[in-house]
Simulated scan of single mutants.
Amino acid sequence: MTAQKGKDLLIKLDASGEGSFTTMAGLRTRALAFNARAVDVTHAESAGRWRELLEGAGVRSAGITGRGIFKDAASDAAVRQIFFDGAIRNWQVVIPDFGTVQGPFQITALEFSGEHDGEVSFDLALESAGEISFAAS
């Protein structure tokens, strides 16, 4: 994979639940993180008292974060409503020349900030709420 433009990393929301994804407008920074909790099965007879982990047993999760400015009233309103409803919706992260990650996420944080001589911005955090799929591009 060669160098890619950060603006081409897209976060998309299926606000209606009908499979129609809309790019979140106004995002300046975006990130996707995968996590896996290890299951420690170390015991008194572990070789050299080194930790042992149980393969394939941990809980996997994904998190999405973004920061941006208000640009599109429809997507802004959808995110706000989904947060206040505590709803879980399908989201996509499109990684250029790599693939698309898709699955159910819940908005776990929605923050607003602004400086007296600047624009109002928002921060968004989502946590996976089910199985995540990956499709290579």
Rank of each mutant, 00 (worst) to 15 (best):
K71Y: 13
G26W: 06
P96K: 04
S121K: 13
K12M: 13
V120N: 07
N35M: 10
T23F: 06
Q102C: 11
S46W: 00
T108L: 03
G17N: 01
S128G: 05
I132C: 03
T42N: 01
G99I: 07
A73V: 11
Q102K: 04
N90Q: 11
F70A: 08
R89S: 11
V41F: 02
F70G: 09
S16T: 13
H116Y: 09
D8Y: 09
V94Q: 12
P104Y: 00
W91D: 07
G19K: 03
A74H: 11
L53C: 00
A109F: 04
D14N: 10
E131A: 14
T108Y: 01
A44P: 04
G118Q: 13
L124A: 11
L126Y: 02
S16D: 08
T100K: 07
D8R: 08
W91C: 11
A73G: 03
V94K: 06
V39E: 14
F105M: 05
S128C: 03
S121H: 07
L32I: 14
G130Y: 02
L110S: 11
V79N: 10
G6Q: 12
T23V: 15
G26A: 11
A73S: 08
D72I: 04
D117K: 13
G103Y: 13
D72S: 08
V41K: 11
I107W: 01
K7D: 06
T42H: 00
D123M: 05
A15G: 01
K71T: 15
G26L: 09
V39C: 10
D76P: 01
S128W: 01
E115K: 07
A47D: 10
M24H: 04
L54F: 02
L9P: 03
A77C: 00
R37L: 14
G68N: 05
T65R: 06
H43A: 10
V101R: 01
A62C: 06
A87M: 04
E52V: 02
R67Q: 15
A109N: 08
I95F: 00
A87T: 10
W50I: 00
S75T: 15
A15W: 00
G130L: 02
I64V: 14
V39R: 13
M24D: 09
D76N: 06
Q4P: 00
L32T: 07
T29I: 08
I132E: 06
E119Q: 13
A25R: 12
G114L: 05
L54T: 04
R60Q: 09
G99L: 06
L32P: 07
A78R: 02
G63C: 03
